[in-house]
């Protein structure tokens, strides 16, 4: 076999592995979210399908959703409506390319890994706008516009917070960033940066308290009001795939990635990632939702200046040695 063909084959296998991992992991995270919320609310959560803890519930739900009738509303923009969930899922899967699960366990160690991650995660909002526009529903449209306005308010701070880490590590490659944290995790050097990144991450993932695009008490279900069955399931899976990818990126940038004593690196990586995820879930089941303009004002008036100052100070300190 020639070399490019072999590489293509290996890339294909890696891609299939990532795809399988993303889907299974998303199903697990949905189950986890339901269990965490149930514990917080003194409920049981799913218990019947897959006893004793209902661990097969989400798989059953996914199967049920796959068999449901595929409804495209009359007057919908068919192409955008159909493509939107796929775009969201693609953007979620693409993020996994640069996530280092362990030493050597990365799909592709890009030189511009962080920049790539920032660019790919920005794709998600296109899908939401497509979904909102394509649905021909007013609630969906308002939800889509909200997600667009939300994106411009947090994206800059998110990237600035990532940049301060890049300055510290002196590299845009995710693997090199993790290796640069062998002595001290960047969260110790960048507590403010981590806070900014985490808040902006919650906004990017459309999670409470920033779940404005799908605010169900206001917009019914926001951009995915008209979605049902398989397409809705893909939205849902992509949401949780994004949650994992975003948290994994937070671990890579701030929490030392796979590094840690005693346990194998992969275990450390997953432990940290799930910790970040559980904190995000905990926040979601504690806080009310902010208003769109409050998020914008938080993004521009608080996060952005703080991120700029953080970046400036970091740059100065690194320059000064």
């Amino acid at each position: 076999m020639s070399k490019p063909l072999l590489e293509l084959l290996i890339a294909g296998i890696k891609f299939a592995l990532v795809l399988g991992f993303v889907s299974v992991n998303a199903l697990f995270l949905i189950w986890l979210e339901r269990k965490v919320s149930a514990r917080i609310q003194n409920r049981m959560g799913p218990i019947y399908v897959g006893r004793p803890q209902g661990w097969l519930q989400t798989a059953a739900d996914a199967l049920k959703l796959l068999t449901k009738e595929d409804i495209i509303p009359a007057g919908a923009d068919r192409l955008t409506f159909v493509v939107a969930p796929a775009v969201l899922f693609t953007s979620a899967v693409l993020l996994f390319v640069v996530i280092p699960f362990g030493p050597g366990l990365i799909v592709r160690d890009l030189k511009l890994g962080v920049a790539y991650a920032a660019a790919v995660s920005g794709l998600a909002v296109i899908s939401l706008v497509m979904a909102g526009w394509g649905s021909n529903n007013k609630y969906s449209l308002v939800g889509a516009l909200r997600s667009a306005s939300q994106m411009i308010s947090y994206e800059v701070s998110l990237i600035l917070a990532m940049l301060s880490v890049v300055i510290l590590a002196g590299s845009l490659s995710t693997v090199e960033i993790v290796e640069a944290q062998s002595r001290i995790w960047f969260i110790a050097l960048q507590p403010l940066g981590f806070l900014i990144y985490f808040i902006a991450l919650l906004a990017e993932l459309n999670r409470a308290p920033f779940d404005l695009p799908e605010a169900e008490s206001e917009l019914v279900a926001g951009y995915n009001t008209e979605y049902s069955g398989m397409r809705w399931a893909i939205f849902f899976l992509a949401e949780y795939a994004n949650l994992f990818a975003g948290s994994a990126l937070a671990v890579t940038l701030f929490l030392g990635g796979w590094q840690g004593p005693w346990l194998p690196p992969v275990v450390w990586f997953f432990l940290k990632t799930f910790l970040v995820i559980v904190v995000a879930m905990w926040l979601r089941w504690t806080l009310p939702r902010v208003r769109p303009d409050q998020l914008t004002s938080l993004g521009w008036k608080l996060l952005l200046p703080a991120a700029l100052v953080n970046l400036g100070v970091t740059g100065f300190l690194v320059l000064a040695g």
């Binding site: 919320s37 917080i40 609310q41 003194n42 409920r43 089941w285 939702r289």
Partner: peptide, 16 residues
């Protein structure tokens, strides 16, 4: 009311 403002959990607490 908490539910209206997006906080699901207080609803379950008062229901207990």
């Amino acid at each position: 009311y908490a539910l209206d403002l997006g906080a699901t959990t207080p609803f379950l607490y008062v229901f207990q």
